[in-house]
Amino acid sequence: MQQMTAIMPARRKWRDGLREEFFPRDRRRDIDGLRALAVAAVVLMHAGWLSGGFVGVDIFVVISGYFMGRSALMQDPFQPARFACRRLYRLLPALLCMVAVISAGMLWWVLQSDRADIALNGAYALVYLSNIWAAGHVGYFEGQALAYPFLHTWSLSLEMQFYAVIFVVAVMLPRVRWRLYALLGILAVSAGCSLHDHLAGDGQGYYRITDRMWEFALGTLIWMLPRPRLPRAVANVAYALALCVLVGACVFYARDYACPSWGVVFPCLAVVAIIMLPHTDVARVTLGPVSPLGVISYSVYLWHWPVIVLANYLLMFQVAGLTMAGVLVVALLVGLLSYVFVERTFLDYEGRAGTVARNRGALALVCACGLLSAGLGYVSYTSRVH
């Protein structure tokens, strides 16, 4: 009897730990569900199963802007060191691990020309300039994209560049009202740049921060907009319509609707509507159940594309069908391991470490990324020379 009593609390503790990890109480499950929808859309597009999966990036961008509004622009006073450390611990460890593992596993056996480009792309990814490298080397929707395992890091570079802009705005403008005006100015200028590139047919605007900044700013503005007070039934209908817009865009959009394009306005506004309507019944039965995938979405996003590229290299044919399904299962498992042992570990450390230790750890992460970036740059240079 005593043994059974001991086993039951152990099982309960194990289950409670899993529930707390993947259904955390301090997070909005519907936003994690949005993340799940976004990463699923991107992964399925890369698998060749979804034409409009690029909308997932737009979803991520608006969500990122929303959280940066709370972390930076709505903070008075703003804490620069705390903000920077949180971002660095959140993003750098998993990225550094992925680039290091894939580089070590691929660069010694691929062709010299491929080695040079892959290494250079990895070097740019580690200093968050991958979008600039991509804009000058490869179209996102072209077949040759399968040769570059770090190409997907262009969106992470956009995110970090946005963080830098928000950091400067928060430091230079101490009052929230001033920050609002700056944000509106950023949104207007970026929307103008995106419209110009759309009319000019400049597809490489897909990678540019100037063409995406309005999406980030739109998410940040959520904190400064009045909250709608709708009857429960009306809120559910509005939420369902916004979710249908997102799913419909992911399923039916063609690449012509990718940013810069007027078509991205609708999914971005749908994300804003969903974020501004929390705790609806529709959210609980649709986005809530898939929220665990949203919790690990960053690591899944990091690893899914390198795994797909590596599979195409090793199998020597373009992976599709059941083979692709197996590849995606592997990518999901690797992403889960990355979340548990890398991403979560460093975030937990950042949360409990003292100020000095936390700051030194962030500096060490930056230095590690810089050193590996320099090493990959050297590999790229020597591969081209010889």
Results as ranks from 00 to 15, higher is better:
Ile31Asp: 00
Lys13Glu: 13
Asp16Gly: 13
Phe22Asn: 08
Arg35His: 09
Leu34Arg: 12
Phe22Val: 03
Gly17Ile: 04
Arg19Gly: 01
Leu37Asp: 02
Arg12Pro: 00
Pro9Met: 09
Arg19Asp: 10
Trp14Gly: 02
Glu21Cys: 10
Asp32Cys: 03
Arg25Gly: 08
Val39Arg: 08
Glu20Arg: 15
Arg28Asp: 06
Glu20Asn: 13
Phe22Arg: 07
Arg35Ser: 02
Arg28Glu: 08
Ile7Leu: 15
Ile7Arg: 15
Val39Thr: 03
Asp16His: 12
Arg25Leu: 07
Arg15Gln: 10
Trp14Met: 14
Arg28Pro: 00
Arg12Met: 11
Leu34Met: 14
Ala10Asn: 09
Arg27Pro: 02
Glu20Leu: 09
Ala10Ile: 12
Arg19Tyr: 08
Lys13Trp: 07
Leu18His: 10
Ala36Met: 06
Ile31Val: 13
Asp26Met: 03
Ile7Tyr: 12
Phe23Pro: 01
Val39Gly: 01
Leu18Thr: 03
Gly17Glu: 11
Ile31Cys: 01
Glu21Pro: 00
Lys13Thr: 15
Asp16Gln: 13
Glu20Gln: 13
Leu34Ser: 08
Glu21Arg: 15
Arg27Gln: 11
Asp30Asn: 13
Arg19Val: 06
Ala6Glu: 15
Asp26Val: 03
Leu34Asn: 08
Val39Glu: 02
Leu37Gln: 07
Ala38Trp: 02
Asp26Asn: 14
Glu20Val: 02
Ile7His: 14
Ala38Asp: 09
Arg12Asn: 13
Ile31Ser: 04
Leu37Glu: 07
Glu21Asn: 09
Glu21Gly: 07
Ala36Trp: 01
Arg25Met: 04
Trp14Lys: 15
Leu37Cys: 05
Arg11Asp: 04
Arg27Phe: 02
Trp14Leu: 14
Leu34Gly: 04
Ile7Val: 11
Arg11Cys: 11
Ala36Gly: 12
Arg19Lys: 12
Arg29Ile: 03
Leu34His: 10
Ala6Phe: 11
Asp26Trp: 02
Gly17Thr: 02
Ala10Phe: 10
Ala38Asn: 09
Arg35Gln: 06
Pro24Glu: 04
Arg29Gln: 08
Phe22Met: 09
Arg11Met: 13
Arg19Pro: 00
Gly33Gln: 09
Lys13Ile: 13
Arg25Gln: 12
Ala36Thr: 07
Gly33Val: 00
Glu21Ser: 11
Gly33Leu: 03
Arg15Val: 05
Phe22Pro: 03
Asp30Lys: 10
Asp26Lys: 05
Ile31Arg: 03
Arg12Val: 09
Arg27Ala: 04
Gly33Lys: 02
Gly17Lys: 08
Asp26Gly: 07
Leu18Ile: 09
Gly17Cys: 07
Trp14Ile: 01
Arg35Lys: 14
Pro9Arg: 15
Pro24Tyr: 02
Arg15His: 10
Asp16Tyr: 07
Arg27Cys: 01
Lys13Gly: 05
Pro24Arg: 06
Arg12His: 12
Glu20Gly: 12
Arg19Thr: 06
Ala6Ile: 10
Val39Asn: 02
Glu20Tyr: 01
Pro9Tyr: 11
Asp32Thr: 00
Phe22Tyr: 15
Ile7Asp: 14
Gly33Thr: 03
Glu20Asp: 10
Ala36Arg: 03
Arg29Lys: 12
Arg12Asp: 12
Pro24Gln: 08
Val39Trp: 03
Pro24Ala: 05
Ile7Gln: 15
Arg19Cys: 06
Pro9Val: 10
Trp14Phe: 15
Asp30Trp: 07
Phe23Met: 06
Met8Gly: 00
